[in-house]
Design a protein around this nucleic acid. Sequence first.
RNA 1: UGGGGUGUAGCUCAGUUGGUUAGAGCGCCACGUUGACAUCGUGGAGGUCAGCAGUUCGAAUCUGCUCAUCCCAACCA
Length: 896
Amino acid sequence: MTSDSKESRELSDRYNPSEVESRLYKWWEESGFFHAEESSTKPPFCIILPPPNVTGHLHLGHALNQSVMDCLCRWKRMSGYNVLWLPGTDHAGIATQSVVEKKLLEEGTNRKDLGREKFLEQVWAWKEQYGNRICEQTRRMGSSLDWERQVFTLDEGVSKAVTKVFVDLYKQGLIYRGTRLINWSSKLESALSDLEVEYKDVKGSIWHIRYPLADGSGSLVVATTRPETMLGDTAVAVHPLDERYKDFIGKEIALPLTNRKIKVIADEYVDREFGSGAVKITPAHDFNDYEMGKRHNLQFINILNRDGSLNEQCGEYQGLKVNLARKKVIEDLEAKKFLVKVEPHQHSVGHCEKSGCVVEPFLSEQWFLKMQTLADPAMRVAESGTVKFEPENWTKTYLHWLHNIQDWCVSRQLWWGHRIPAWYCDNCDFITVSEKSPKECGGCKGKNLRQDEDVLDTWFSSQLWPFTTMGWPEENELQKTFYPTDILVTGHDIIFFWVARMIMAGLKFKGDVPFRTVYLHGLIRDSQGRKMSKSLGNSVDPVEVIEGYGADALRFTLLSQIASGRDLKFSQQRLEGNRNFMNKIWNAARFTLSVLEDFEVPEDGYIPSSSDLSAADRWIVYKTGKCEDEVHKALQNHRFSDAANAVYSFAWHEFCDWYLEFIKPIVYGENASEKKATQLVLAQTINRLVRLLHPFIPFISEEIYQKLPIRKDVLMLDSYPTPSKDKAWLAIGSEQSALEMDLVREVITAIRNIRGENRIKPGVKLKSRVAPKDDKGQKIVSANRNAIMSLARLEQLDIQQEGSLAKCAVTPVSISGIHLEVVVPLEGLVDFDEEIKRLTKVLDKVRKESAGISKRLSNENFLKNAPEDVVELGKKQIDELSAQIKVLEGALERFR
RNA sequence: UGGGGUGUAGCUCAGUUGGUUAGAGCGCCACGUUGACAUCGUGGAGGUCAGCAGUUCGAAUCUGCUCAUCCCAACCA
């Protein structure tokens, strides 16, 4: 224990978050308090930070995410664990390339003009600037990350690992190159995975077009939302059992506008009810048509260029973008009388998640990863509970997705990312896939090799994050100590993108799950429940919040609201409320320190003699233990809001509202040994309180801690208080002391209530008589006379059974079998009407309650079936209530 | 169409295995600066627990149905 001089124990008048936060964070970081040992006698605890993108800045989602992780890490660190919280950033291929391209556009240039090399230089410059900025912002949250181990997804080591994984998977036949229909973003000019497509409902039209038979013997009508794709039609399909089209099957159609001949085929996929019951088939531009094209061996005609314009297959329409082509095709169809009708039609259209453009199904040669063999073990670990999802209903969502998993298109036609380690030969068709740049073709030994231009999907490297951050594929101590990590904390929006893939990759390459628990929190919405987005202008910058309210207030707000995976609404009011909480704690600490000015720290383990301890002293120690227990259990179950709320109500409504008020007459009083005992309880309690608070509000707690008379050097390295520790100290408190305080509090509240309801000003001191019904009550009230007088603002307190009741307010009080009456003479103070009103109200309430219980007790079935203690309780209550009714009726009678 | 949430005070949400009078924060009303704090204190008002039916001595809690609302997935020629 450390004891400081008086001067250093003072806290400034006002808490200044920004000054304190930057000073303390710097101190913590430079002292190496965030650093984890590669191996240690302490048990390990490890969390990998979901790496933020280097695109821009932190948003509230990060703030939430980090508040949770930092709370866990600080709690575990204080609980004696060797804690590694591993930071890093993500290159975020598409996202970062997009923002840089946007910037270039504003500067009047573009990536194609710059060329690959120059463009990448620009992106790296961007990364330097924003990558650092985002780390600075993360520091401002107070996140206790081991910065010495920071990793970036394009670091050399990580890149090597990514390449190795690609090569291994290729050699095992799990990665293959193939020409298939994929999602294509014509704005990015790149392939996308299924997950990167966002479906939105769009109001469009459905066009009915007449398709004549080639032999002139008739025609049928097809319905389509995309008439321009008819340029790529290679069949018309009808249902085999559809009577209307029976005779058409097998015949040829002369496609309008081009006059190309296509067949009418029969396929059960066709819905007879929809549209005309005849479907145009465009295998190269629709996923269903693609499947049908394969089934019927149809021709695949690609009508698009990479930029979304129509290609040379389209004759006079060549060069037009899809929208314009559609317009022209319709005009031409109408002019040539092929257009039958147009109807409005709402349907969902895939959009590129990043660029916003319409996604085209596009026939293209890409790299794919076979997922089925990876998915199977990933399903098993979720089923067996080796990986636990919290809340657990996400397990179902996860399994469902894995069950229906499709191969993953991993190549992107971008420049920013991990280049695909594949080389093509100019002489033969052989593809050389290798970790190192090959000298010759693996097939024909030719020397003219070109590396694949494409890069890998960002998530391809992200899936390896839990072990590439630890230096894999090299074996090392770090991985032995910390892999598998303990818990992944993330939003449920990336459960497929990231969580599922990490599990598959971890099992594949490390032979073990990457984390034991997946904690999925909800997303942050604005106060109206809308998603936060830049376009809506409702997104909140956490740094601005921190500047206005302090990091602690922000953290506490988020932590006190996060529960059971639900989305949470962010409100200014809550933030203010919690800023006020910080203020409350600050002031409570200031007051505490002023009370402890002349306090001398006794030896370790010293316990004051019980005669010197007040009821409040024993009570607050008891409540401290209760609160510690609650917080500890809540944290173990990841119920952060429960933990935050428990500590909040303890700090404010028990410690501040009652304890600090209660001890005032003692610490300002004459009895030196009582004062000393109380000072010790106060010093110990505030010490435990700030330790308890630290994982939630690290800055203000550490700042206060540094001024406390009883403390160690650093709060964040001190131990986390739990009832299992310091049993000798906590034994001061007891259930009995809680009971005693409850009674005292009830008496005080009763007098305050009489004062308030009768509009007696707080400045007016009252006389009161407390009439205990037995010795126990008598003793308790007497022992706490000073506190009652002070907190109820009395000038006189008589404790006696007998006394006048005339013109007196009377309130019965009962606590666990102890009964007493609180009597306040009102003569000359008030108009009695108010008191009559008050008494009537109380009486009504008590009668109602009594009636309810009587009714239950008179029910034979209840007496027969209910457990004995429930029945007993009811009987006891009826007795108490009846006594109270009598007292209240008497009081009321005397006023009439 | 399928899957999953949610519906409790004016607002945001707690409410464990059914069991006293359903809680908190903010907001609201009244009074107030008493030697930490007006970012405060004391007192108070405010709820048919979405609706209906059922199980039970007893339901916010369990079951079924209905309504509202949100998210995810699929289909959409």
